[in-house]
Design a protein around this nucleic acid. Sequence first.
RNA 1: GCCCCUGUAGCUCAAUCGGAAAGAGCACCUGGCUUCGAACCAGGAUGUUGCGGGUUCAAGUCCUGCCAGGGGUGCCA
Length: 580
Amino acid sequence: MGVIQDHLSALVLGSATETLHGAIPDGDMPRDQVLATQDQRHGDYQSNLAFRLAKLVRRPPRALAGAIVEAFPRDPALARLEVAGPGFVNITLDDRWLGEQLLGLVADPHLGVPQSGRNKLVVIDYGSPNVAKRMHVGHLRSTIIGNALVGLHRASGFRVIGDNHLGDWGTQFGKLIVAWRTWGSEDAFRQDPLEELQRLYVKFDQEARRDPAMDENARVETARLQAGDAQNRELWRRFVRASMQEFQKVYERLGVRFDAMLGESFYQDQLNRLLEDLLRDKVAIVDDGALIIPFDESDGKGLSRTPMLVRKRDGAALYATTDLATIRYREAQWSPDRILYVTDTRQQLHFRQLFAAARKLRLTPAELIHVWFGVLTLPEGSMSSRRGNVVRLVDLLDEAVRRARQVVDQKSPHLSESERAEIAETVGVSAVKYADLSQNPQSNVTFHWDRMLSLDGDTAPFLLYSLARCRSIQRKAGGAAQWDAEKARLLPGHPLERDLVLALCRYPEALRSALNASRPNTLCEYLFGLAGTFNRFYGCLPVLKAESVSRSRRLMLVGATAQVLSAGLGVLGLGTLERM
RNA sequence: GCCCCUGUAGCUCAAUCGGAAAGAGCACCUGGCUUCGAACCAGGAUGUUGCGGGUUCAAGUCCUGCCAGGGGUGCCA
């Protein structure tokens, strides 16, 4: 079983080639994918190839479309072909063929998703919070989107290494060390380490505004830490360890597991060699006491004016240096085919520079991709750990679960206390994750409690509910949930059944397109549409009480819906529920 | 100065490489549970896609000029 889109595209292309008999060399043939129609009156799929060709051979598109339809090969997939409008070719699929496609899809462990990543390895760099700071809602995006990208790649056959490139070596430690020695409280730290570190961080910032000497002290302590000073080193270890324990709790709750957690500190002893190589290869030059990598316009628009700084005048390295070393390490260790960086839009310039520098140094043949997302701000302005105006991630999750619990208690009082608690946790956390995933990552978002915590409409609970309904039917069907393939394949059934079959068959397309665009929201959109189609089907047509042929077919549809929904939810990193 | 991003319904957002009549959800109104789960479904109302020009068979999408907002831009990450 293949992707329907590809099958039809090949047919259209074949027909067009036939029609034109060599008027266009093979290499110049436009690659035009058949698209799902937006409107059912235009059939199931449409081809716009005639428009592309019209330009090349200077014939009216409508005539070309007619010729393409004329020369179309016989194929069991096709029920009807039409030329419409100025030159669209509308394709309606054969019911029985669609049924066969669906049976093939549910029998495939990958549910028909093309394994484009077979034998390929991708490193996905995401999460990457700064250590010693509390995780707030701003950290959600990289973590959740990155995790969904991991899922999309795995579903497509890639081997994936999700790497949490922790900010565990920055200048914030010098500040914290100074602040700790000046105002730190051992008791407070023992009680709630991150609260205490947060307090110190804010306090330091306030004091440093009044007294610039504080910043200088911090620089000195940072330098001593990086030079290996034992006491600073010990403090640093304590701060990092405490943060990691805190992070781990959040990750567990979010259902996010990393395959590697190699933070910035991990690369520190590799930086000198890197800097030497930069000089040796004349990629970097000394300028005003600092070491920079200059670019010209061929490296990227505007880059000639913005060199990348890799060593400060005082000799200290920067995150750009670490990032270069990280690429070199990943290449040596894993030889990835692709490296994805999931960060917000503000780092676009940094990554353009980084990738350009990596090319100059020939650090890796891997495809380097920066998947950036928009910034999350509060209604009252941008969040800042330094200023202390953040919404803590745990508070958001707790509130989500609290609201979910209210609904569960109201809707399902018959379930046990512990089951309701479990359901509320899954519903609440999934709702928060979905609220983020279902948006175009590149949009900037303003944080609103009610939107993040909504449980109605286009939300995770709607998807979970649809799945729970499937499960409920399957349970009630008992052993008879086994449908008969011969009967199940008999189509057409009711138009609502056909809608569902078609929606299910589009799962591979939806997943592939989300992967290619690095946009989990398109998969969300697909799943929301599928759940809607299922709920219409469910609302109108009996399953268990239907006569035998319909019953078998509909049970198959229920089972297939459950398979696709739970697979899709899994890819996005959302939980699933048997009942709710 | 230079570079990047954004502007779509009252609100929050979608819209495939440019594709047919710009779609969802929320909120609001009407209807549907003695029948597999009503966290559901059916129906109703909502637009100068910031503004002007251009390219195209076709523009929210591409080009261009304005307007408004956000971000980045050599010693933070």
